[in-house]
Computed example of a mutant assay.
Amino acid sequence: MDPIEQFRTERVAAIDGYGRDGDFQALSNQWREASMAKRYVYNFDWLGRPIIQYPQDILAMQELIWATRPDLVIETGIAHGGSVIMSASLLAMLDMCDAIEAGVSFDPGRSKRKVIGIDIDIRAHNRAAIESHPMASRIQMFEGSSIDPDIVAQVRQASVGYSRVMVCLDSMHTHAHVLAELEAYAPMVTAGCYCVVFDTLVEDMPAGFFDDRPWDVGDNPKTAVHEYLKSHPEFEIDRSVQNKLMVTVAPDGFLKRL
């Protein structure tokens, strides 16, 4: 067997085994609960901006963007801007690699790859930091509720002409809100690309863990995902991603469009 293919085969087998390893799963979930209680995800930046994600999930997003090569990433939830800047920088990397493979000069001004970020409240200091960042030219922001029909219409209009689209949902984490986001934005995802629904872990945490938030066990992104999938067979949960990570905020949240 080709050694590269052999490595991939062995890795796939190991990841599949993690998904069946109850002890490993329990240990990972125990660490996840402890780390969430200590706000561990607040400790990391991407290119200078707080990203508020596990390093495992950051790496997973890099892998998915490289594998699916989107030309548009739509994100709900901007916060400090780390995630939209990460997506923008990865799209820039794709452009550079495309230029190298084609044997032409890299001209960032010619690319149309971009990120659309939506947030109900883009605070002035965060907006200023994002707009002054080197990746700013690749980022378009909309302020308002991600499920407001006017915002959805504006995002759809801004998405015209893009052939490979990825969506990331990371704003309000109640069942009703996430389900409405899925209905609005998941149809924009193109075949072979992903809709990533963050913070599905709420369903797996102890009841009342997020006592200062309106979401809880039974009312969260994972319950919305499972409800959405009942009537949308064009998507499937790619559990190989969560099995590989073991610690993720998005169990059952990596949805691949078939």
Score class of each variant (00 low, 15 high):
residue 152 V to G: 00
residue 82 G to K: 00
residue 189 V to C: 13
residue 241 V to A: 07
residue 81 G to I: 03
residue 84 V to E: 01
residue 241 V to S: 09
residue 231 S to T: 15
residue 141 M to C: 09
residue 170 D to R: 03
residue 91 L to V: 03
residue 104 V to R: 14
residue 137 S to Y: 13
residue 35 S to Q: 13
residue 133 H to V: 01
residue 82 G to F: 01
residue 64 L to P: 00
residue 163 S to D: 15
residue 6 Q to H: 10
residue 216 D to Q: 10
residue 63 E to G: 09
residue 77 G to I: 03
residue 158 A to T: 05
residue 55 P to E: 10
residue 131 E to S: 08
residue 28 S to G: 15
residue 12 V to C: 05
residue 107 D to T: 07
residue 173 H to W: 12
residue 79 A to R: 09
residue 131 E to A: 14
residue 251 P to S: 11
residue 70 P to L: 06
residue 85 I to Q: 02
residue 19 G to T: 10
residue 77 G to Q: 08
residue 172 M to N: 14
residue 119 D to Q: 01
residue 59 L to N: 12
residue 30 Q to D: 08
residue 208 G to M: 14
residue 41 V to T: 10
residue 22 G to I: 06
residue 29 N to E: 15
residue 3 P to H: 11
residue 17 G to R: 11
residue 123 R to C: 02
residue 67 A to Y: 06
residue 28 S to F: 01
residue 108 P to F: 02
residue 200 T to C: 15
residue 191 A to E: 14
residue 245 L to Y: 05
residue 109 G to Y: 01
residue 151 I to S: 05
residue 6 Q to E: 15
residue 217 V to Q: 14
residue 183 E to R: 15
residue 227 E to C: 06
residue 221 P to D: 08
residue 114 K to I: 06
residue 21 D to W: 01
residue 49 R to M: 12
residue 119 D to Y: 05
residue 252 D to K: 06
residue 178 V to A: 05
residue 194 Y to C: 02
residue 63 E to F: 10
residue 32 R to Y: 05
residue 184 A to H: 07
residue 112 K to L: 12
residue 61 M to C: 06
residue 193 C to Y: 00
residue 165 V to H: 03
residue 245 L to F: 05
residue 245 L to N: 01
